[in-house]
Every structure is written in C-alpha cells, then in structure tokens.
Design a protein around this nucleic acid. Structure first.
Length: 274
DNA sequence: CGGGCGGCCTGGAGGC
DNA sequence: TGCCTCCAGGCCGCCC
C-alpha cells in the first residue's frame, strides 16, 4: 500500500486529532507482525503518555511522546491506522489499539502482517537499525540530479531498482517509481550508468512532482489505503502507467506494457520511455 | 560487494 | 459453486 505519499497523508490526517492528546490505555490484541510487537515496551512507553507531535521518516510514521519516546509505525503492505468513534468490538486483523483521553480508539490493523510497530527513545531514532541506513528525503530539497548521478557512479543497476533502493532515496515504492520514470521518459530497465546529467535532473524533478501531486490528491488507493479518518485517496485516476497494461498512453497513444523486474511489476510506455 | 531472488502473510480476482 | 494459481503498495537477508 503505502509509499511516502500515503504515509504523509495519513500523518496529516491524524495531526489535528492526536497532537496534544493523552493515551489512556494501550492494548495489544495480537502481537504477531513481521517483527513481533514487544508488548511490555510498547505499553509502558505509550500508556498514559501525551503525544507531542507526529512526524514521518521514509515510510515510517513517528508518533513522538512528551516522555521522549517515539512510537514507530510502518504499514507494510496492508496496514491501517484509523481513528474510530464507534464500539470497542475488535475489528478483523486488529493488532493494537490506543484509547484516547476523549474515549476514541486509534486502531492498527494489518491483514498481511508485513507492518511494524515498536518504540524507541526519540534521540536514538536516527541510529536505530531501521533508520540508520536510510537515504535522503525526496521532498526536503536534497534530491537533485547531481545527487542521483553521484550515487550511481560505479553502478549498473536498472534505474527502477535504483530509485526504489531506500539507501539512496526513501519513500519511492513500486507505483511512484513507475510514474516518475514515465514522467521523465526513462525506460525502467535503463542502466544507471547510461543516464545523462540532464536526464538525472529531469528524473529528480519527476520524483518530487509525482510524490507531491499524490499527496495533494490524498494518496493512491488501489484497494485498501485509507487515511486516519477513513478517507480514500484519489491519485489512482492520475496514474499514467501503473496498473494500466494494455491501455493507451495518454501522452503518445502507445499501449502500456507490464514487465517483471526483480520480482516486481514494472509498467511503462514503449513509445515515451527509452 | 552490488544486485537478484525468495520469504514473510492474507485475500481478492480470474481461470477452469 | 469450488478449487487452483497468480498477484498485490515493503523489506530484509541470503546468496552468487
């Protein structure tokens, strides 16, 4: 599900509801995720804690408490973090829930269990093993063609895998890698060793443009993405290539193709992308 | 050592 | 209707 835009949309949707709020009860219903939830530490550092602010790093949502601990949530492929006003009946695949001081619930559900939930002291977050190797944030001014060109020196990987490698740039997953490459008119299989400086500039701009537009549209809901209040995103209708195999390119009319690269589907236009 | 691949899970779609 | 296979937005570790 969630690439950078979806996590950012989730974060923004939760800010007005969570910042300054106190958690009165933390309950772990089903601790089994890819990394098991450490009940003791999650409960002891969030229950009775007051949320200072919500941040994001890469595809991780960071819920920072005034006790200087941070609750880290990763949605994996199918995770959802939603506020609910209704009853307290457990929902399907509900792993964890927080009761807020106003009585509402913040629920974490994740059918496929690729998500992650853990706590870490806020000042130790950068050196945590989930974060230490991460590359730059694409929307914070550091992503330039020169940076990408520099990072690609001595490599031969296809540009799509390179874009999705979070040691270089974070937040770009399968959908937005395909979309950015289409916008920059680069074939997903092109080797990073054979991309000109001008084309790197174009690609850096395309990544930022695509991510920003997706945020503006509330993210991409293919199936199950919802923000913290249950809203779907609308960027799906703006996708130019992702999941459009067999349909015409809206820019040149050629038929969009699907290929498989490192086990993932890549969608591209054989007319525009060389 | 860069990079490709399998594995982790459930559920929905489509073929027969 | 039911059973099977394939596929899905991420990430890590293993292996060549």
């Amino acid at each position: 599900m969630p690439e950078l835009p979806e996590v950012e949309v989730l974060r923004r949707s939760l800010v007005p509801h969570l910042e300054g709020i106190t958690i009165t009860l933390t309950e772990v219903l089903f601790p089994v995720l890819r990394e098991p939830i450490d009940l003791r530490s999650v409960i002891s550092h969030t229950q009775d804690g007051r949320i200072r602010r919500l941040r994001r790093r890469a595809k991780y949502l960071l819920i920072e408490f005034e006790n200087n601990w941070t609750l880290v949530v990763h949605l994996g492929m199918s995770g959802q973090l939603t506020l609910s006003e209704g009853g307290r009946e457990p929902e399907p695949h509900e792993h964890l829930r927080f009761t807020l001081s106003d009585g509402r619930l913040l629920r974490f559900r994740d059918p496929r269990r690729f998500g992650m939930v853990f706590v870490v002291p806020t000042d130790e977050l950068p050196s945590d093993r989930h974060f230490a190797h991460l590359g730059i944030e694409p929307l914070e001014g550091e992503l330039t063609g020169a940076y990408l060109a520099r990072e690609s020196v001595g490599r031969s990987a296809p540009v799509k895998s390179f874009l999705m490698d979070n040691r270089r740039v974070v937040g770009v997953g399968n959908i937005y890698a395909c979309e950015a490459l289409h916008l920059a008119r680069i074939h997903p299989k092109r080797s990073v060793g054979r991309i000109s400086a001008q084309r790197w500039d174009l690609l850096a701009g395309a990544v930022r443009t695509v991510l920003q537009r997706a945020i503006d549209e509330g993210g991409t809901t293919l199936k199950d993405f919802r923000d913290g209040t249950g809203q779907s995103g609308y960027f799906r209708v703006s996708l130019e290539v992702y999941d459009r195999a067999g349909k015409p390119c809206r820019r040149c009319g050629r038929v969009i193709r699907r290929i498989v690269q490192t086990g993932r589907s890549s969608f591209y236009c054989p007319g525009c992308q060389r």
